[in-house]
Design a protein around this nucleic acid. Structure first.
Lengths: 341, 341
DNA sequence: TTGTACGCGTTATCAC
DNA sequence: GTGATAACGCGTACAA
């Protein structure tokens, strides 16, 4: 082994396949790309030759001639260093990968941290990929725009600064917020508070909107609206604040806009002797691993993250194939009743 | 926007840069690839032209001519669906990315799930990447061998089935195990048990070896050796089992080979009224987020995962550059004293 | 130091 | 249906 650089056994070429099959390069090329318009005999011969020679088309040559790279960039915005490690994004990547595996595209990973947009952007706008996916929740830097101008692009999640020309795939956070709130209402709760995400993130905003809407439809008003910053600590602090600010009348239920915040809230409540769900019911959002990492298991709203990743890719592939898919693709959430509500 | 497929504004080419700078294609090429052996005047002119035309080399053409793809594959073995989402791997990927960003290579992501090795392997062995990284802990499928035969490959973590020809970067799990055990001994503990990882994983084996060695050096014997499968549940069960099996003489300290198992153990102990660290000290391994996700914070051994990712890439890049790095690169661990020991 | 000319493996455009 | 042949954009002897 130990092939030095560039010292590969130089895989078979079209030329060799053609010779082996007794046809011309062109015919081999036709077989490789669709197989249409070739005689059954030639087709069989070429296929056999390909098999025997273990022929794999040279991507570079193909790209050069066809002016398509068959590569898709997955761009992770710079400010998201903890992108991986977050189960939510992990599931999305898994979905993207699954969908792309079924195609003949390759996924190029770009974590644009400590890069002021320049290098990655230059690469993407330089015609080195056919399309791009940006998975982000609160950045909408200008470099994204430049990418969008150069190649077809699809966002995971509604972009923070939406434009008509953008394509994105998102879960229905509004409906999810409604779902959670409805569950609380149906259980008889009336003094319902929420621990919301940061106002800069569309997902947080939408869930809050769903909360308010469902409450309004039921003729209720929010007991309180706290902010928890999508972290466990924030959730805990918000829950405690909720208790202190309203010594007389406690909320009887809390909708936390993420499982992390819900978990923090449940722990904080337990630490001050408040029972969940007996004293206060809590419902989260995401159905992330923390929901069942410890007792009590969180009642929550599941978002189909893996499916979202698949859908993102499907939309992009559709665009690359010349189709005109919807600009917005919205996926449904689902209630997951467990122990906390 | 909305560029159809292949309908890009066709970025500038060497030809255009050459014309703009008043030199030939070759000179431009030389400037782009190293800048050596060109007159200062020409160099300046070319650089200016490149800047003005926003020239980006066409990867496909470059690959075709140089017979190098400037792409590296990150292969995630098929049985690791939860690869992402694991903070350990997340940190490694971050490191890999950081190192690769500083080079002019591109990272191609292959999650080889639901693919029987065939498609990905064909791609990699077909000369479409210059090198590959396999991050795995307990798989050593034959497809890895085939990849290793085709391109330079570096493993993250010691491969389950080691071969002399393999290159890998690992943390010093043996030393880490010793470190943890030494910390327990220094604190005066003498009845020290361990909750080990699965025997199929090198990391688990090495940590256990370190545990045994340090104990032996101190003239001590393991109080008990349980198996926890690297999960929180396994850690909890092992801790409880430890208590039940030895009703008379409890261990006074436990070395859990992962933070997840340590966390499970601490929870289980608390659930039966055993105080940590007063009654039983517990030390983990990894310094993962769960170590500080809740109280008590875990005393643990930190492994430099991000650095490991960087080192993996560095070794691979060195090989691609024609150097002959060490086959094994071992990184040091570090004790992180917190609350549980 | 610089330029010329050829080849990398494939697709696309033609005639046949 | 099939086969020449010209690009595709770049690296690199080789010559100057």
């Amino acid at each position: 082994m130990t092939a030095g650089r560039g010292t590969r056994p130089s895989a078979a070429t079209v030329e060799q396949v053609a010779e082996r099959a007794g046809v011309s390069r062109s015919t081999v090329s036709r077989v490789v790309n669709g197989g249409s318009r070739v005689s059954p005999a030639a087709l069989a011969a070429v296929r056999a030759a390909i098999e025997e020679l273990d022929y794999v088309p040279n991507r570079a040559a193909r790209s050069l001639a066809s002016r398509q790279t068959h590569a898709i960039a997955l761009v992770v915005p710079e400010d998201t260093n903890r992108f991986f490690g977050d189960p939510f994004f992990a599931a999305i990547v898994a979905g993207i990968n699954a969908a792309i595996t079924d195609s003949d595209y390759v996924l190029n990973l770009f974590i644009a941290s400590n890069d002021p947009g320049s290098k990655t952007t230059r690469y993407l706008t330089g015609g080195n990929v056919d399309g791009a996916i940006v998975v982000s929740h609160h950045t909408a830097d200008t470099f994204v725009n430049r990418i969008a101008e150069a190649v077809p692009l699809v966002f995971g999640g509604r972009p923070a600064v939406p434009r008509d020309a953008y394509y994105y795939v998102d879960v229905d956070n509004v409906a999810g917020g409604r779902l959670a709130t409805r569950h609380l209402i149906d259980a008889g709760h009336r003094r319902i508070a929420t621990i919301a995400g940061p106002g800069t993130m569309p997902a947080g905003e939408d869930r809050l909107l769903g909360f308010r809407s469902e409450l309004a439809d039921a003729g209720l008003e929010p007991f309180a609206v706290e902010s928890g910053g999508f972290t466990a600590e924030g959730g805990a602090a918000a829950a405690l604040h909720l208790l202190q600010e309203h010594p007389g009348a406690r909320p009887d239920a809390i909708f936390a806009a993420s499982d992390l915040m819900a978990r923090g809230a449940v722990r904080a409540l337990a630490s001050v002797g408040v029972r969940v769900p007996e004293d206060i019911a809590v419902i989260g959002f995401d159905d992330s691993p923390v929901a069942v990492a410890e007792r009590p298991y969180l009642t929550t709203v599941r978002q189909p993250s893996r499916r979202q990743g698949e859908a993102i890719t499907e939309v992009l592939l559709a665009r690359l194939a010349g189709a005109e898919p919807q600009h917005a693709t919205i996926l449904d959430c689902e209630l997951v009743p467990r122990e906390t509500a």
